[in-house]
Simulated assay, not measured.
Amino acid sequence: MAKGRTFTRRALQDWGWDDTETSEDTLLVASELLTNASLHADGCHELVVAATETGLRIEVHDGTTVLPVRHPAPKPGIPGGRGLHIVERLSDRWGTHTYGTRKAVWAEIEASRLESGTPVTP
């Protein structure tokens, strides 16, 4: 997961979308997608981070077609069940698609948020 986060951070830097609150949120979204693949879906087989016409798309491809389940109400004080809530809250869109024996869980962040986000103060 650390490698995936580093890869995503470098992509954000390459596209000039780093050092903002939204870029930090984007890294958290990537981490959550990678963690979910690791815990629930035979691990991450491929991480795709792409700049699109409208912003940034993160896709985590794993080794199962079982779709993720968003827990309706994570329980306070009990670990787990929050990943997709975090993804939903911090991204502009998210979803899944299956192909063959695999699936991808994806999230998108609009460019306007990445370009005009508040700079992170050290």
Rank of each mutant, 00 (worst) to 15 (best):
L114D: 00
L67R: 14
D42R: 13
H40Y: 15
G43E: 07
S31A: 13
L28R: 06
A30M: 11
D25H: 12
E21K: 10
A51G: 12
M1Q: 08
L27E: 09
P79H: 12
F7N: 08
G4Q: 06
C44Y: 04
L47A: 09
T52C: 12
D18W: 03
L28T: 10
I58D: 04
S112V: 13
A73W: 00
T22Y: 02
A2H: 11
E53C: 03
A111T: 03
S38A: 13
G117W: 06
T52E: 14
L56I: 09
S91D: 04
G77C: 09
G81F: 03
P68V: 01
S91N: 05
Q13P: 00
A107Y: 01
H71K: 13
V87D: 02
E110W: 10
T101N: 14
H85M: 07
P74N: 06
A30V: 14
A111E: 14
P79F: 09
L27M: 10
E115W: 02
G80Y: 02
Y99S: 15
D19L: 03
M1E: 06
I109K: 04
T121Q: 09
E46I: 00
K75T: 14
S116Q: 12
R10H: 11
T20Y: 07
G16N: 03
M1K: 04
H97Y: 15
D25I: 00
H97K: 13
L56R: 01
T22E: 12
G117V: 08
E108D: 15
A50V: 04
L27T: 08
D25Y: 06
A2T: 13
P76C: 02
G63N: 11
T54C: 03
P68Y: 02
L84P: 00
V69L: 07
C44V: 11
